[in-house]
Design a binder for these strands. Structure first.
Lengths: 234, 234
DNA sequence: ACCTGAACACCGTTCAAGT
DNA sequence: ACCTGAACACCGTTCAAGT
């Protein structure tokens, strides 16, 4: 036993970033601290600074790890099939944001986009350009689709239920638990309560809701280029 | 001079919240600390805790102050004019988020919606219900519009320029400054660079971009209820 | 009822030193 | 080249005390 500390993996930028991502997924963005990260790596806080300039760069790093998980639109596919390709990318982006909820407020706020982010948007714009969209419309489509996915993910974090069944239960509980408080709310916000009550009995499905809005937007996008009304083959 | 500290306003929940909002606007969300807030109010940190349970409640409070700035759709208007009303509300929400950029990641993430938030969404759902939208479609429309506005505001925070002229300058500088780096980027991300270059020379206008996407979505919304194709009168 | 003082358990990060 | 120790200037918040 001449070598000491044989059980600890040698630190590397990649190991640091991956551990940070694991912590963020488990503890949320507020729970990710340099000090916790260092202790989980069996190391003193300052050891991290050899592999990462500071916490900001650490976050840039893990945000790009998240971007790398988003499936880009298939570049080898038929250009006329831009719509299913764009749809699948939007769904993949949303699923990725669901796996890393802490990232939603950060993905587009980071000032220095990483290589995975650039590659992702390059693939997206390539898909649209090859399909015949103008420069300007390529920007419009990217802008509106990404905005929708982000905003939807942001909204989903607020609501206190995760599944359709749960939505009904939660509303039912609220209704039975505080009838007095509810009566006051109903007086002040009649339309809101009415819609929420209806929603609760019918059940609320995030996936279906997301896809309804997505298809509504894709219909609008398709109208931007009337030459091709939806791909040639299928 | 028998009374001491005559110049300091007496603390109140409202004063605390308004001061916190001012600091958040000036310093960003990370710059808003209980300690800075207390010194700006000429008081010891612990004094705040008489008026606000903790920092989380403080943030809930200022987020609701922001909601109160959003213009609700006019309830007294012609129900058939739901489209301009919805459009104006989306624009107002975006302008509010521009005035308080720190709030974008927080407005929909807060778990306990405040009264201004509830009132805002009640007005929105009332406008849609009176216009004849079904419960389910009212939810669809609210969901897709809010998601778009949030996501757009989130995206706008990333980009390193604010005005159309600036966008051209920034791109021009990048182009002249690091031609070698740019060449490498162009090789790896050809579509992205091509679109960005085109955008830079033509200029990029956030307001126009936002309204293009908004109108695309409103077209889709209008197709949800074919009975009224755009209001009766005008 | 409202504010203060001192303290606790945390942060990110610098600087000089160890191996 | 990589990691450590001690320190600094910050956090939010509790608890007991002042007026």
């Amino acid at each position: 036993m001449s070598t000491s500390k044989p059980d600890r993996q040698r630190l590397s930028r990649d190991l640091v970033l991956r551990s940070a991502l694991t912590i963020a997924d488990r503890e949320g963005s507020a729970g990710l601290t340099m000090r916790l990260l260092s202790t989980e790596l069996g190391v003193v806080p300052m050891a991290l600074y050899k592999h990462v300039a500071n916490k900001d760069e650490l976050i840039d790093g893990i945000v790009d790890l998240v971007w790398a998980e988003v499936e880009p639109p298939d570049a080898s596919g038929d250009p006329a099939q831009w719509r299913p390709a764009m749809r699948a990318r939007a769904v993949s982006l949303r699923e990725t944001l669901r796996r890393h909820p802490w990232a939603v407020g950060l993905m587009e706020t980071r000032m220095r986009p990483g290589p995975a982010n650039l590659a992702q948007h390059n693939a997206m714009m390539g898909c649209l350009r090859r399909a015949g969209f103008s420069f300007r419309n390529t920007v419009h489509v990217t802008s509106v689709l990404d905005a929708y996915v982000y905003g939807f993910a942001l909204q989903q974090q607020t609501l206190p239920f995760d599944t359709a069944e749960e939505s009904g239960e939660v509303a039912q509980q609220k209704l039975e638990q505080q009838p007095a408080e509810l009566a006051e709310l109903a007086a002040r916000f009649p339309y809101l309560i009415e819609v929420v009550a209806e929603l609760a009995t019918a059940g609320y499905d995030y996936d279906a809701e997301f896809e309804t809005g997505l298809d509504l937007i894709l219909d609008g996008v398709q109208r931007l280029r009337p030459e091709w009304v939806g791909g040639s083959g299928a």
